[in-house]
């Protein structure tokens, strides 16, 4: 638990451009968290709650005209700081200290190049320039994700979806990063392939050297893989705790609904979380707790103020008036 801190995010805010000419939308709101060396953090929530944006903003993978504020410290270096604070350090960290695995539904491999060639692009310069070392490294990376060396000679369209996603993981590992960001890495895959890909991720972290942030809408899957979980709703973190705490003593009504919703969809391919209602549009201003309209436990205060994330137990933070009141009473 008391591991060395690798990544420390404080008061992260992200604004993304809406339609041309419209004002930017506040997508991520005052999110803070830390990831220790070798630790695995899961970020969960429904689609549109800001979890992918949170993840991608850590390495500056945001669309044009986006804005961020707060601090992102990797190994003590503030990636948003520096003499010319325009995201240069984010760009430097990208593909060096931080590897990224994007959603499997996106075609993340260029169809016109062989897999091996694309993997070599990600290698550190000193390895890339030595052809023999580079080839050996590519084969080694493929082996680590459970693929034979001949995959390096294949074109992306010759591989199955699961193989492609394993290649994507190998690509993210190419520069030997300290931190791996995985954005819904298994969403578009069927359940068995999904399990295999998660096994691969699991084996990569086995030596405790690689830290992972996994973004998923599937709470049960994230809870199986991660040490700690952060639940997000409407751009905010609403609960933050170790996985056992979440599984057994979830504090926020939203987390509990997510648990109930994901518990019974385990084996369905199109596993869509079904909680009545939908997350609010972040483009519209609203007062009070954003979950209030859908919340089964709402009461007086909920519609007026936004609850802050308060500690209610050992390493357990919840942003809910109902829980905070009860927590204090207990």
């Amino acid at each position: 638990m008391a591991s060395e801190t690798l990544l420390e995010v404080r008061d992260l805010n992200v604004w993304l451009p809406a339609a041309a000419g419209a004002p930017r939308v506040h997508i991520v709101r005052d999110v803070s968290f830390t990831v220790g060396r070798g630790e695995r953090l899961g970020v969960v929530g429904e689609s549109g709650c800001g979890k992918s944006t949170t993840l991608l903003s850590l390495v500056g993978l945001l669309p044009a005209r986006a804005a961020v504020s707060g601090s992102i410290r990797l190994d003590g270096v503030d990636l948003l700081g520096g003499a010319s604070p325009r995201g240069e350090r984010l760009a430097t960290a990208r593909g060096r200290d931080v590897g990224v695995v994007l959603q499997s539904s996106m075609n993340t491999l260029n169809p016109v190049y062989r897999v091996g060639r694309q993997m070599m692009e990600g290698l550190r310069p000193e390895v890339r320039t030595d052809a023999r070392r580079a080839r050996a490294r590519v084969h080694d990376l493929l082996e680590r994700v459970g693929l034979p060396p001949r995959v390096a000679r294949a074109y992306p369209h010759e591989l199955s979806g699961g193989m492609r996603q394993r290649v994507a993981i190998a690509l993210a590992l190419a520069p030997e990063p300290k931190l791996l960001l995985a954005d819904e890495p298994t969403t578009a895959l069927d359940t068995i392939v999904q399990a295999r890909v998660m096994e691969v991720l699991d084996s990569l972290c086995a030596d405790g050297q690689l830290s992972v942030i996994l973004v998923s809408h599937h709470l049960a899957l994230a809870a199986r893989f991660c040490d700690r979980l952060m639940v997000m709703y409407a751009g905010r973190a609403v609960e933050h705790a170790g996985r056992d705490t979440i599984s057994t003593r979830a504090g926020h009504p939203y987390t509990r609904l997510l648990l109930a919703a994901t518990a019974d969809i385990g084996m369905r391919k199109d596993d869509v979380v079904s909680i009545p209602g939908a997350p609010p549009s972040l483009a519209l201003a609203h007062e009070g707790c954003p979950f209030e309209p859908r919340c089964p436990e709402r009461f007086g205060d909920c519609a007026d103020r936004v609850p802050t994330l308060d500690q209610i137990g050992v390493d357990h933070h919840v942003g809910c008036f109902a829980r905070q009141t009860k927590g204090h009473l207990a």
Binding site: R94, L102, P111, A168
Partner: peptide, 13 residues
């Protein structure tokens, strides 16, 4: 706007 462009950017190119 293709995914492999974002992926290439994520690779630090």
């Amino acid at each position: 706007s293709e995914g492999y462009i974002l992926a290439a950017k994520a690779r630090g190119l």
